[in-house]
Computed example of a mutant assay.
Amino acid sequence: MEHFIDAAPGIRLWAEDHGAPDAPPLLLIMGALAPGLGWPDELVALLAAQHRVIRYDHRDTGRSTWAYDEQPYPLTALADDALAVLDGLGVTRAHVVGMSLGGMLTQLLIADHPDRLLSATLIGTGALSDTPYVHPDGTRTPSQELPGPDPQVMELWSQPWTDQGPEAELDRRTEHWRALAGDRLPFDADYFRALERKIIAHTGHHTPGDAHARADTSGMLRTEQLARTEVPTLVVSAPAEPVYPLPHAHHLTQTIRGARLAEIPGMAHALPPEIHKALATEILDHTAHH
């Protein structure tokens, strides 16, 4: 069922839910510049077997309000939007799954609003902590020196966007997914092209947003709060991850109190059909215990 939720003055968010209305709620938070449909229907259906699954469009994506130039905001406001979605749908507490920037927003919720979370799952993200990463041999790497995105991904992100029409934009987005999908699993270009075609139809235009890349990133660290949290947290480790490569997932488990690590074989920074069952199984096992 579709919903439109007023999150702030002049900001309306699109959301939808799947599954039994009385099932335990599970909120999906997508990454930067990505709408809720970035969570594939097939994965949502697997999760909806046990949950009321909620996905939504960040502001400046999909069918939500696009107004960054008129109403600029910090990235932390996107965590407030997640709470607004829960409030708008009458959800007091939820399991929350965040990917990439969505994983950072989930950490903000863990730190600032633990009473609203039943559990948290973090995918393809980095820790909002300045504690060093401790290697198995006991040596330490400062958090700011952990490896960054793959050069191929950085090259794609650095290219200026020009409007060459919808089909050319689909080509560009498909190649972007190819870089994010890593090299451990076969890449299905038709699958990701169809996903992006659906996203463009949902959005109503093919112009990509850049608001989240321009938003103020200050005030994100939550070192102390994450170190003492009681929110049960699952960290998904993706061995082919090109945006937050290892050891970011291990660093997360060190900085978030009680966090548990689960590796999804072949996974990178994308959600292809080959990993849906394994990922859903890990998430559902985590939520079932909390």
Rank of each mutant, 00 (worst) to 15 (best):
A79D: 09
K198T: 14
R172C: 01
Y73H: 15
A49D: 13
T162P: 01
Y73M: 10
P21K: 04
R59V: 13
L105N: 08
P35M: 03
E169V: 01
H113T: 11
P149Q: 09
T61Q: 03
D190Y: 01
H290F: 15
A23N: 06
W39T: 05
E230S: 15
R173L: 15
L75Y: 05
L128D: 06
I110H: 04
S218P: 03
E263Y: 05
L89A: 10
G219A: 10
D17R: 01
W157D: 13
H18S: 11
L33Y: 00
V243H: 00
H250G: 00
R63Q: 15
G209S: 15
H206T: 04
E167H: 08
L156Q: 11
D57K: 11
E16T: 14
A82T: 06
G62Q: 05
L279C: 05
H289L: 14
S143H: 14
D163V: 13
P147V: 09
V231W: 09
P149Y: 11
F192P: 04
D115W: 09
L26A: 12
R12V: 14
E169S: 07
V96W: 06
H51D: 09
A249E: 12
E2R: 14
G31W: 05
D41F: 03
L146F: 10
P160C: 05
M220D: 02
L28F: 05
A227F: 07
T203D: 01
G182T: 08
A77Y: 06
D60P: 07
Q107P: 07
V235K: 02
P136M: 03
P24G: 02
V91L: 14
Q159M: 14
H289F: 00
P142C: 02
A238S: 15
T229R: 13
E70I: 07
L252I: 09
P186Y: 04
P272H: 02
V235D: 05
G19W: 09
A240R: 10
E2V: 13
A94Y: 08
W14N: 03
P21D: 13
T139Y: 03
D22R: 12
A48L: 13
A211T: 13
T125P: 11
H206V: 04
E167G: 02
W157I: 10
V235R: 02
G103E: 06
E2P: 06
L105T: 10
A240G: 15
E42I: 00
A259M: 09
P40L: 03
P160G: 02
P35L: 04
T141R: 08
H135N: 15
P151H: 07
A240E: 08
P72S: 12
L117Y: 05
P74M: 09
T162R: 13
T253V: 15
R197N: 00
L122K: 12
R193F: 01
L108K: 09
T229A: 13
A7G: 12
A211I: 13
D87Q: 06
Y191E: 00
I256H: 06
W14Q: 01
H248V: 02
P245N: 06
L226R: 10
D137E: 10
G10H: 07
A8K: 10
P265Y: 02
P208S: 04
H202R: 08
E145M: 11
A94V: 10
A227N: 11
E145W: 04
L156Y: 13
D130Q: 14
